[in-house]
Design a protein around this nucleic acid. Structure first.
Lengths: 213, 213
DNA sequence: TCATGTGAAGAGCTTCACAGCA
DNA sequence: TGCTGTGAAGCTCTTCACATGA
């Protein structure tokens, strides 16, 4: 099934299905229908079937999907079937929280190091993860074939950090810095701007919707 | 311009424009064209004009947009023109990081309290924000007309927390708990599931895209 | 019979192209 | 002239409806 330009939203939903499948498998559920997956996820059954159909026919008509089989397929599609290593760039409060959050909550991705420039934090450990000086980034990225950098530095530092990340060979940045990053062609940036997100949320929390502006 | 069912993406971009406008105003820039905003944001100039046109005609033909005027309009549209108070539910590492992050980075939204049930953290302060016992939520929400709850409790606690939040009168939840929340009609949930997000990112970091599954 | 897989229809959002106005 | 504001066209994603096959 060659690359038919898969919508981003499809990939994100696959990650949701993956989590549900993990729970089902943990509870020894072997078969699940798109209707049942729909109830668990809130997406429509048709959408779930369409999402999976982008990549092949993984179900059995009249029955549903085998949970373990489907999980393996999704892992392969996303690329989580191989060991996936990431790094955290910026070991401030958010960086530390994300390191812990990831370590405890995500079984598929391994944080191999955090980086900072502050001598106060370099050398410390976040659970098992060492905080290293940024100068060691390239070494670590090459050693562990790191695929993603999570960026949580202050705005002023973000330009330098992006250069370090790109120089290290990483092609994919999960950006928590509240600014637009300028990156070379071929580097994929995913923005998680929590302030923007929160501010836009206020729109839905407010009864101002029929106001005249 | 009554509610023409504004796309979510439009509201999110408004929050982006708001940040750019803040920077421009800080640098005494008084006029900006949609083309210049396009360069700052990465969105197309047509899209920016369309976004604003949902709410009215805020520009001057042949000239552009007055930065202060446009900022005020966007603040009113989103609902950030009035004092906007929020609470953090769950004062673990992520909750603390988000409290600090918000306090230092977002001038429009005020965190009035954080809540937890752990006696070890109740009573402590995150910069200026007191961590209170969950039992005080309703009191605080009513006192400060709190509009949004940021939810960062462990999964096991999320069901109870949602009940507390709903009982307190809050209509809008920004959810960082990696699970689907079941909420009554009329409660708006925005999910920020960082694990899902990260896992789906791996797809773009991997060269597996033309694999056969 | 039952649930998947899928072309076709529909909805929603973005881009285009240009009219309208300072 | 220059940039906004906007119907129309285009595109992308979702929903529908049903043929297909266990």
């Amino acid at each position: 099934m060659p690359n038919k330009n898969i919508p981003k939203s499809v990939i994100k939903r696959l990650a949701v299905y993956l989590r549900i499948l993990d729970n089902l498998i943990a509870n020894d559920v072997e078969i699940i229908s798109s209707r049942e997956l729909s109830e668990e996820t809130g997406f429509t059954a048709e959408q779930i079937r369409k999402d999976l159909a982008y990549f092949g026919a993984f179900g059995t008509r009249g029955t549903g999907y085998n949970t373990s089989f489907l999980k393996d397929k999704i892992l392969r599609i996303i690329g989580l079937d191989e060991q996936t290593n990431i790094v955290i760039v910026g070991a401030g409060h958010l960086g530390i929280a994300l390191t812990r959050y990831n370590i405890t909550k995500n079984p598929y991705v391994q944080v191999v190091a955090a980086f900072d420039i502050d001598p106060e934090v370099v050398g410390q450990y976040i659970i098992d993860t060492e905080v290293m000086h940024v100068s060691r980034m390239k070494e670590i990225v090459e050693k562990y074939a790191v695929k993603v950098a999570i960026l949580t530095v202050p705005i002023e530092q973000s330009h330098n950090s992006v250069e370090d990340i790109v120089a290290s060979g990483i092609k994919c940045i999960y950006n928590f810095v509240p600014t637009k990053l300028y990156v070379p062609e071929g580097i994929y940036v995913h923005n998680a701007d929590l302030s923007i997100e929160l501010n836009s949320l206020i729109y839905y929390a407010t009864e101002s919707k029929n106001k005249v502006f």
